[in-house]
Nucleic acid binder design. Structure first.
Length: 942
RNA sequence: GCCUUGGUGGCGGAAUUGGUAGACGCGCUGGAUUCAAAAUCCAGUGUCUUCGGACGUGUGGGUUCGAUUCCCACCCAAGGUACCA
């Protein structure tokens, strides 16, 4: 008897595919292209658990399906191999991160190979490979070499800006730049010396160096991006994070804010993800209004979304960090103001967030002048105003803003009424609809929309303000004080940054003897013996030669994790791995962008936003053919683990079974799920051997002599002892079973717990499938060349239709069910006809490629099944002559009636009415109305 | 608070444009086979029932001949975000 020996079959075909390079993608083809991509993994030391491959299996099914449909499919895989865990491991053990990373990658590869993915491994990338990161550095240099033209709405080479400065100065230029860029004429520009010019240019470059407040994490010895800080502590490790000023490389992503927002309409992404990005970018429309400070030359601009409420201003509040605070503060308030500033600076972001409700502030003693009424407006400082948003100052309109209202109430400031018939004795009125302005001079009697238009015109006419669109999005800090990242291709001459020449890339990571920051607080690269730039020879040289005039220090920071992942999808396109281009123009023009991207939603405001930014930039500079990287995106859900707990009696080395734990005072501790069976029973003997603390422990059993654990669904993690390894599943059930079961578990987008118990259903199905092709005596391989019966063909075509629909809707879980039904039906029909069994293999091969490939060869093919064309659906096999109509009375189904399908409405109606059961259910009444939906239902209302 | 997604048996989950709710799988019950077990196969399995039927898709209304599906209000859960002026 031929047994379904999955281990042998899977090994055989995995080797066959690798040897024949079955899934190698070509950059030249007559077929239409299709690019299917997974978010590449960070190769961690823990290896893969069953949750990781979920998205890879889905994308693999789609990639294989598209090959069957006649597409030239690009389906690559690689590693995001720079990262903090390898570095921390290096700090602890002294092992070079490159080494541990290499080991982890090999392990990942081994695990992935066992699942039978159709990746083109010839295109693999690793972000930590110098041959890869030379291009990450190159793109950085391109950003350094660019500025953003707001007129043309694109990035342009910096030379064009220099030329403009030399001809016309910068008065008329509309470019994305730092707020503090000085205004100069052409002749002034020419008079500046080299370092002055460079300093100004830095204020326009798309990546620039600036002293900024950053999230400094002392425990990790590094700066973190906003999205790496969660609730005031580091996302990784949960260490405290404080605000600190540091000189950092910054990406001018804000120049792209409006395009990043608008172009969301062009891409097919899940709504929640688009919403996340929309919120993150945070566009708000309003106006800048300038308030002059009395008895001083200081003018303070505020940003407001409600300039229409300007006649309701009764005070002004500046952020404590606002640069004008000390200048305007009156002598008698000075002490109090300084005390307040000091107090807020000490409070970490975390503290500030934790007591949001507390209202604090101090009067500066200064007064601003109302731009229209000239009234005196007291100027306060308060920490509810953030220095980093808008202009760091607000106009206080208590009637129209709840926070201003609370502030006014607390400090007993006036609350002028500016809305007709609105009660503001308890709270502010912040609505825009159905309000009429009063006490507002020339805005009296106007609605929100009318007043907005009028006030902006008035502000502009008076020269005290203008319309302004403000974004919440900030420029992205790009420096990390780490070792295991891309070095910046930058050196410093008298403190001014200069790019190292493109031809000298990659600038390779230097060796260091320790991966910690230096004693003087410099990043780890400060420890490198050779880390200075020899301009004349274009080479990295010894630090000690710095005295020599032609040798300059190199940047000590490295790039963040998102640098390498913001463009890797282009490197995959390059088939020859050419060293002279990041991807050849032919390759870029052929593959264009990713048609389908699958990955987790946790990257919504990180990777997925930064990638869009870099791609738009590369597009502007004519380096790539598209301005969005990912056309369609799907977020796969997480596969969670079912943790198991035993209950320890407090203060004792005794453990109680779950059902009787109430009799004791206990607390739960995790136990390894491998010691627990399907019935939640712990194998106590085996468990005792797992750790010394349990060896002599006492276990209190239930009446039936079992020891039960309690269960809880949590994230899969080593520390929770709930990890299920895909290798074990492949060993025990086979990769095809694993693939199908992961899909069968539920909708792709949904998070769901892993439960190995249910896998037998899918495994049994594959055995049944195998049996279909073994109809010979004693289960020997045999299929028939006779033509199939009509019912058999019907099963096939029903399946073709459903599976095709399912795959195209990414509803992989339901197509597994469809296969199960089909195999059950074909088994019942004792079908063994090639006419049915051959196309059926193609349908199933994206899901269970190994068994499909094996049977495909058994039925006489030499070529891989992946080259076979997807079977064509033929409607005629599904058309029926008769239909079983459900007959309902007042909407309730009572019986069914088989009727010819070609019957007209009237014929169906009379056939139903003349039926004896109809008379029975009518109970002597006459029908009021009869609804006939041909082919579907008959409903009789009586 | 705001935005988004969701709520269906013991469990994971199906249900096309409103038309037989619970497909498929797990689990459970009974049976066949076996010395026995595993494996395999067959039958049953939403709840209640006076065996006629009644009730059932988070709750309460509405539209409709007919609602898991559409509309209104509310409750709950998950994710994102937050002194954003």
């Amino acid at each position: 008897m031929d047994k379904y020996n999955y281990n042998e079959i899977e090994k055989k075909w995995q080797e066959f595919w690798a040897k024949n390079k079955t899934f190698k993608a070509s950059n030249k083809s007559d077929k239409p292209k299709f690019y299917v991509l997974d978010m590449f993994p960070y190769p961690s030391g823990a290896g893969l658990h069953v949750g990781h491959p979920l998205g890879y299996i889905a994308s693999d099914i789609y990639a294989r399906y598209m090959r069957h449909r006649g597409f030239n499919v690009l389906h690559p895989m690689g590693y995001d191999s720079f990262g903090l865990p390898a570095e921390q491991y290096a700090i602890q053990t002294g092992q070079h991160p490159a080494k541990t990373t290499e080991v982890n990658i090999l392990r990942y590869r081994e695990q992935m190979d066992k699942i039978g993915f159709s990746f083109d491994w010839d295109r693999e990338v690793r972000t930590s490979d110098p041959e890869y990161y030379r291009w990450t550095q190159w793109i950085f240099l391109k950003l350094f070499d660019s500025w953003y033209d707001n007129e043309q709405n694109k990035a342009r080479p910096i030379e064009e800006l220099i030329a403009h400065f030399a001809n016309q100065g910068n008065e008329k230029i509309n470019a994305a730049s730092d707020e503090d860029a000085p205004v100069f004429t052409a002749s002034e520009w020419s008079a500046f010396d080299e370092s002055q010019q460079q300093e100004i240019l830095l204020k326009y470059r798309l990546t620039y160096l600036a002293e900024t407040e950053v999230n400094w994490c002392a425990e990790l010895g590094t700066v973190l991006a906003n999205d790496e800080v969660v609730n005031g502590v580091s996302e990784r490790g949960g260490y405290p994070v404080v605000r600190k000023k540091m000189k950092q490389w910054i990406m001018r992503i804000t120049a792209y804010a409006h395009r990043l927002l608008n172009d969301l309409d062009k891409i097919d992404w899940p709504q929640p993800l688009k919403d996340s990005q929309t919120n993150w970018i945070g566009k708000s429309k309003g106006a800048i209004v300038e308030f002059a400070i009395q008895n001083s030359s200081v003018k303070i601009p505020v940003f407001t979304t409600r300039p229409d409420t300007i006649f309701g201003v009764s005070f002004m509040v500046l952020a404590p960090e606002h640069e004008a605070v000390l200048e305007i503060t009156a002598k008698e308030q000075k002490e109090e103001v300084e005390k307040y500033i000091e107090a807020t600076a000490k409070r970490s972001e975390r503290d500030r967030l934790s007591d949001v409700k507390k209202i604090t502030g101090v009067f500066t003693g200064a007064y601003a002048e109302h731009p229209f009424t000239g009234e005196k407006i007291p100027v306060w400082i308060g920490d509810y105003v953030l220095a980093s948003y808008g202009t760091g100052a607000v106009m206080g309109v208590p009637a129209g803003d709840q926070r201003d209202y609370d502030f006014a109430k607390h400090f007993k400031l006036p609350i002028p009424a500016i809305f007709k018939d609105v009660d503001i004795s308890e709270e502010a009125f912040s609505g825009k609809e159905n309000s009429i302005l009063i006490n507002s001079d020339f805005l009296n009697g106007m609605s929100y929309a009318q007043a907005m238009e009028k006030i902006i015109a008035a502000l502009e006419a008076k020269g005290v303000g203008k319309e302004k669109i403000n974004y919440r999005l900030r420029d992205a800090v790009f420096s990390r004080q780490r070792y295991w990242g891309e070095p910046f291709p930058i050196y410093y001459k008298n403190g001014t940054p200069y790019p190292i020449p493109e031809t000298s890339l990659p600038l390779q990571l230097p060796e260091v003897e320790k991966y910690l920051p230096t004693e003087t607080g410099e990043p780890p690269l400060g420890r490198a013996a050779e880390w200075a730039w020899d301009e004349r020879n274009a080479a990295v040289v010894d630090n000690k030669k710095i005295d020599n005039k032609i040798v300059f220090p190199l940047e000590l920071n490295t790039m963040p994790g998102w640098a390498g992942s913001s463009w890797y999808f282009f490197r995959y396109m390059e088939d020859e791995k050419r060293a002279e281009v990041f991807a050849s123009p032919e390759a870029l023009n052929y593959w264009k962008n990713v048609d389908l991207y699958i990955g987790g939603s946790e990257h919504a405001t990180g990777h997925l936003l930064y990638s869009r930014f870099w791609v738009k930039f590369l597009y502007d500079r004519g380096l790539v053919a598209v301005d969005e990287p990912f056309k369609k995106l799907i977020n796969q859900g997480m596969i969670l683990g079912e943790s198991a707990f035993i209950h320890r009696v407090e203060g004792e080395n005794r453990y109680v079974s779950d059902n009787i734990k109430e009799q004791y005072k206990t607390y739960p501790i995790h136990v390894d799920v491998n010691f627990v069976n399907v019935h939640n029973e712990l194998d106590v003997e085996a468990f005792k051997g797992s750790g010394s603390e349990f060896e002599n422990a006492e276990f209190i059993f239930e009446k039936d002599r079992t020891f039960k654990v309690s269960r809880e669904v949590e994230k899969m993690s080593k520390s929770k002892f709930n990890v299920v390894n895909p290798d074990d599943i492949c060993e025990q059930y086979g990769a095809d079973t694993l693939r199908m079961y992961e899909m069968f578990l539920g909708p792709l987008e949904q998070s769901k717990p892993w439960n190995t118990a249910g896998i037998t259903g899918v495994h049994g199905f594959l055995k049944k499938l195998w049996k279909l092709y073994h109809s010979g005596t004693d289960g020997k391989f045999l299929i028939s060349e006779k033509s199939a019966s009509k019912p058999e063909m019907k099963v096939l075509h029903k399946t073709i239709k459903k599976v095709q629909e399912d795959i195209e809707a990414f509803s992989f879980n339901t197509s597994v069910s469809t296969f199960m039904i089909a195999v059950n039906e074909l088994s019942a029909l004792k079908c063994n006809a090639r006419e049915v069994l051959e196309p059926f293999l193609i349908l199933i091969s994206p899901y269970a490629p190994h068994i499909a490939e094996e049977l495909w060869h058994k039925i006489g093919h030499n070529e891989s099944i992946s080259n076979a064309a997807f079977p064509t659906f033929n409607e005629s096999y599904l058309t029926e002559d008769e239909k079983e109509y459900p007959i309902s009375f007042n909407g309730k189904m009572r019986f069914t009636l088989k009727l010819p399908l070609e019957m007209s409405k009237d014929e169906v109606e009379s056939a139903v009415m003349s039926h004896e059961k109809t008379q029975h259910y009518l109970e002597g009444k006459s029908p009021k109305k009869i609804i006939v939906v041909p082919g579907k239902i008959v409903n009789i209302v009586h």
